[in-house]
Design a protein around this nucleic acid. Structure first.
Lengths: 206, 206
DNA sequence: AACTTGATGTGACAAATGTCACATTTTAAT
DNA sequence: ATTAAAATGTGACATTTGTCACATCAAGTT
């Protein structure tokens, strides 16, 4: 199995090579330390598996991966990362990366590389745990981001539950007029036209 | 590594044992052919990895897995399946299964088992491809299920985009009155109160 | 031809909604 | 204590919305 290793930190790349070379089936075709190098070396060496850091100076591992996949749709890219950042996970998934594992667990790297070589997709245990959450819509709508007050936020929640102004007033112990005023303010702040658009906004910005 | 193998078809279980036993690191602790057996044998043998079929007579692999995880939160369960059914994938993910691979690719099974033993999570290539789609909300609302006509459906879409009756009328080349009538009908059919609730219904029913 | 049906439209109406310009009251800041 | 700034409320008003009872009209059906 021909392997290409890319890591921002050359020392890490070297260590990886040392560790992985011990396996007699693995031949490390080249080492690199940037996204640009990844793209170039991939073309030159056409490895079976590309083991690459995500965070790197210059273009990120994700971007490099996209370029490589564009040219070699079957490329098997296995990402190494220090953190497990939701955003990266989602991007890596969307990009079709074959794996995403945490650098820390050394022992896991070799089996992961082997599995990817065998056509599997390997995501480190902790990473996988996040996917179910990501699958379900966020329940909390935080209007603070849009400059809404606490009360206004509650009104938004209520509107998003389909309540009428009267019902909202009863629920929040306010007068109906006040609720109307709140809604007016909310709509202005969010630049929306009516409560229906507010509900839509709520559900599309969950 | 101690391995427990469960497959509806005893022959398959046996074949798996034969294949996997060739690896000197693997010891097959037991074979089983039902979800109930899986639960029992897991308790008895406490394997490092449980390799289990999903579709089985009696309780499914998923249910068995849930019971096992409930008792042994760190259980490493690797599902084998003939199909890659969205529903099962989602369930397996939510349950915390460590893997989900297609039976067909024999060569993949051994590396997958090894990777799972090493703490990784392994989802077969095709399986993984589905996750990004599952991550984004379904765009199509099929009102047919609720007895809505084609036109009514278009109105629903329009309402869900936040348009006013006038705007909808213009867009669909109808009179505003007709749009109002449509909405009346839709609300009755769906047992909703107003357009805001309709929009909410739309977004909460994919 | 007479009839049915469905899609489309109209007008009237009540209720709900959103805006606005202002009061009150409470709270916080100086 | 005085002031400023919120939170809360009121009433008037124009619009929008949803309901309803009825027109029209085209396209089938019998």
């Amino acid at each position: 199995m021909k392997l290409l290793i890319i890591d921002d930190d050359s020392l890490v790349a070297l260590s990886l090579k040392t560790i992985l070379s011990q396996d007699k089936d693995i031949e490390v075709a080249a080492l690199g330390s940037s996204g640009e190098e990844a793209v170039r070396l991939y073309d030159e060496t056409l490895p079976d598996v590309l083991l690459m850091d995500i965070r790197m100076k210059g273009i990120t591992g994700i971007e490099a991966g996209e370029q490589i996949i564009a040219k070699h749709p079957d490329a098997k890219i296995l990402y190494l990362t220090t953190f497990n950042d939701d955003e990266y996970i989602a991007k890596a998934l969307a990009m079709g990366a074959k794996g995403y594992i945490i650098k820390q667990d050394y022992e896991a790297i070799l089996p992961a590389v082997r599995a990817v070589y065998g056509g599997q997709t390997v995501y480190g245990g902790d990473v996988m745990k996040k996917i179910p959450e990501m699958l379900k819509p966020k329940l909390t709508f935080d209007g603070t981001e849009y400059g809404l007050t606490d009360q206004e936020n509650q009104v938004v929640e209520a509107v998003a539950r389909g309540l009428s102004n009267k019902e909202i007033a009863d629920e929040l112990c306010l007068s109906e007029g006040t609720v109307r005023n709140y809604i007016s303010n909310i709509l202005r702040k969010l630049d929306l036209r009516d409560r229906t658009n507010l509900a839509i906004f709520y559900y599309t910005h969950k």
